[in-house]
Simulated assay, not measured.
Amino acid sequence: MREIIFDTETTGLDPLTGDRLVEIGCIEMVNRVATGRTFHEYFNPQRDMPVEAERVHGLSAAFLSDKPLFAERVHDLLEFIGEDPLVAHNAQFDFGFLNFELTQCGHGEVHVERMVDTLVLARRRHPGAKHSLDALCTRYGIDRSHRTLHGALLDAELLAQVYVELTGGRQIGLQLAVDNTGEGTVTATRFAPKLGEYRAPRPHQPSDEEIARHKAFLESFESPLWTS
């Protein structure tokens, strides 16, 4: 099964108030194993970069000024993600910006049924705990020491590892199922063990010989505590 783990960086929180997508990073996974194929691009937002946003991801307006517009790379992006499930952390946010940019350049939106939200998965699996990407990396022992700022491709790489842990680790037979409750795609554990030769159950009761040997062993103790 092919899935795309992705993350975005933006100028702010809401595309409907003028914020834009400035970076996207995508990781291809097949059967929950990264294939090494990625898509990563910075975009010129054609606007200023708020100080608060730059503190998060470190992307300045000057750095982005010579980067392509989203519309110039949209075909490559759509070709990479195909029709496969898209996995993101707090996916409503990333889907909102992705779909806004798609519609701005005349493309249809990515359907929400393709959305897999790891934040939803984390809340269900670890209720009451912290569910940020940093917290989940700490919980699962994933090294994030090289993450000094947010970055779309780096965060997608970390999220890919978190996603594997959230869905049960690298166990054969665990597959995804779609939950149309409106909270995003969730996992269902469907374990299909390999069938091998039938083995008769092993006897667990001791034999007469073993009982005799055990009795002789106990009688070898001088003044054992259990006889006092």
Rank of each mutant, 00 (worst) to 15 (best):
R124D: 14
L153F: 10
L98Q: 01
S60H: 05
R123E: 03
L64G: 05
E83T: 15
E72K: 02
M49E: 01
L21M: 12
A34G: 02
V56H: 00
V164I: 15
E79P: 03
F70S: 11
R199F: 11
T8N: 03
L121W: 11
R73K: 15
G173M: 08
W226T: 08
L59D: 03
D14V: 04
E52K: 03
R213C: 02
L77D: 07
N90A: 11
E28N: 07
L69C: 10
E157Q: 15
E41S: 15
R123T: 04
D76E: 15
E9Q: 11
N99Q: 05
L86I: 15
H150A: 14
I211H: 02
G141M: 03
C137W: 02
S132G: 11
A212F: 01
E157Y: 07
Q161P: 09
I4R: 07
L159E: 09
E109Q: 12
Q46S: 12
T181W: 02
R139C: 12
T8H: 04
I24M: 13
D208T: 08
L78I: 06
T167K: 01
F6R: 07
T118V: 11
T189D: 14
L59E: 05
L195S: 13
L77R: 07
E197Y: 03
G25Q: 12
V162P: 02
F70I: 12
L78C: 15
V51M: 10
G18H: 05
S132E: 05
A129Y: 00
H57N: 13
A62N: 05
A61E: 13
H40E: 15
P45G: 08
N31C: 06
P193A: 14
H146Y: 07
L21Y: 06
Y42P: 00
E219V: 03
E209Y: 01
D48P: 00
T10M: 08
L121Y: 12
L119R: 10
H150G: 15
F39L: 13
V162Q: 00
Q171W: 05
P224W: 01
E72D: 14
G96F: 02
P68Y: 13
D7L: 04
E52Q: 03
R73H: 13
L21D: 02
N90P: 07
T11V: 04
I4F: 00
L69P: 02
Q175W: 02
L16T: 10
H126K: 04
I172F: 12
H40R: 10
D208C: 02
G12K: 05
Y163Q: 08
A122D: 00
P127W: 06
R147Q: 13
R202A: 14
H89C: 09
Q104N: 05
F6M: 11
R202F: 02
L78A: 06
H204P: 00
F80Q: 11
D48M: 06
R125H: 07
R114S: 02
E79A: 15
L153I: 09
